[in-house]
Design a protein around this nucleic acid. Sequence first.
DNA 1: TTGACTCAATTACAATTGTACGTCATCATG
DNA 2: CATGATGACGTACAATTGTAATTGAGTCAA
Lengths: 129, 129
Amino acid sequence: MPPRPGLSKAELEIARIVWELKDAGVRQVFEALPPGRDIDFTTVQTYLRRLEEKGYLNARLEGRNRVYSPKVRPSTVIRETVGEMVDLLFGGDTMPLMKHLVEDRKFSSNDIEQLRQLLDRLEGGGDGK
Amino acid sequence: MPPRPGLSKAELEIARIVWELKDAGVRQVFEALPPGRDIDFTTVQTYLRRLEEKGYLNARLEGRNRVYSPKVRPSTVIRETVGEMVDLLFGGDTMPLMKHLVEDRKFSSNDIEQLRQLLDRLEGGGDGK
DNA sequence: TTGACTCAATTACAATTGTACGTCATCATG
DNA sequence: CATGATGACGTACAATTGTAATTGAGTCAA
């Protein structure tokens, strides 16, 4: 198969809502938009249709309503999106992104502790290259 | 001022080359493309022009050649791009991205050590919220 | 001095994206 | 039943993006 086409920003926004709702009709997604996000109902319809066409969502007919549910797992989309960004921004090298994040974004000491533990859990699993 | 329009993928690719070269004419950028990246000279020209229009690059005339140099610093572009992605993918929350990266990308034990040190250096500087 | 080249500048054009409209069917209710 | 709300579905359309062709001036070498 050809690799899935990527998601556009607006599509990603909508996909996230479906992931969260697990299972949702157009109206539900529409209503789950953050306040201030002012787009038309039919626009949401369009995004959902495109997401289905691109293979990211399943759609079934419930009565005469279309109900969408995730098809590709969020973690997959995240991996692809992040991977693409790492390629684009850092030539595929993850460490610079890590450095940027650690230095640039604010973490609470709680976060820092969590990160330490994540790293600890890694040790031994890595290929140690 | 209106906020700078974002960079497209192709533009980012070209911007990265300019950052690296510090100062470059179209030809140089063109030649710095990775082997296999097969786009036309004039296409590169177009991207550089757009980058200038969008305010990311400076251009000066050297003889009758246009020489481009960075105007917005890479770190700024990186911050914006990463920030946008964090918003889109994780609703603005950085930690899930960190987790994803740590769990999903392969790090050498050397990398892990470096990350630990980064975290250590943070402690005390963070707002500890 | 005539090609062969090289650039800049302009223009083009298809694909993708963000956004919405129009039409038609269905349903519930006054 | 007429009417208003709701949705599916198809269509539209401008902006952005990825990519290139065209045109015209300047430079170099034969």
